[in-house]
């Protein structure tokens, strides 16, 4: 929470966008890149700095799927459920990962804050369906087994680092 009281980075982002309320979406994107989510304090701070109501900032943040109001895991796994992936059984992949990570339909993030599992509507890599993305890295032609292996590899690497 230490860095939340210090808005230096947010100020720098606001300055970069000339404190222009029309750039609100770009500002929120940059702020989310810093915190990996949009903390309420940061949104209020942005609203005050831009001279717009906090409700407007919250309205925009809650409208777009790209924004998250809750902290996400360090590895965000997005399983594509676009049409092409769907007809090639992307559901089974999401289900296998959910089981592997011990997640319920209500919880998206593991308790150790390592993984967040999401399904997205289309990554545009339909030629490689079914596909998934782990932190912006695309993995195509997946099966439930290969997806679980990818995640297990990260888990093993992380445990090794901490041990």
């Amino acid at each position: 929470m230490e860095n939340l009281r210090n808005f230096d980075q947010v100020c720098a982002i606001l300055k970069e966008h000339d404190h222009n309320p029309n750039r609100l979406i770009a500002i929120l994107q940059a702020v989310q890149d810093v915190y990996r989510y949009l903390p309420e304090e940061a949104m209020t701070f942005i609203a005050t700095s831009l001279g717009i109501p906090p409700a407007k900032v919250f309205g925009v943040a809650s409208f777009y799927a790209h924004f998250t109001l809750e902290p996400k895991g360090r590895f965000v796994v997005k399983v594509c459920d676009g049409t092409a992936c769907h007809v090639k059984k992307s559901n089974d992949i999401a289900e296998a990962l959910r089981k592997h990570l011990g997640l319920t339909p209500q919880s998206q993030t593991t308790s150790d804050m390592l993984f967040t599992l999401e399904t997205v509507s289309c990554l545009g890599t339909c030629g490689l369906a079914p596909a998934l993305v782990i932190n912006d890295e695309v993995h195509g032609l997946q099966t439930p087994q290969s997806a679980v292996e990818l995640v297990s590899e990260i888990q093993a690497r992380e445990t090794a680092v901490h041990a």
Partner: peptide, 25 residues
């Protein structure tokens, strides 16, 4: 270049404009 933020409806002309203006799309 303006980046969207994940809303399908923004493919609709008027919603897209609203999004460029920094509003809900």
């Amino acid at each position: 270049v303006v980046e969207g933020a994940g809303a399908f409806v923004c493919g609709e002309e008027t919603a897209l404009l609203s999004s460029i203006e920094g509003n809900r799309g």
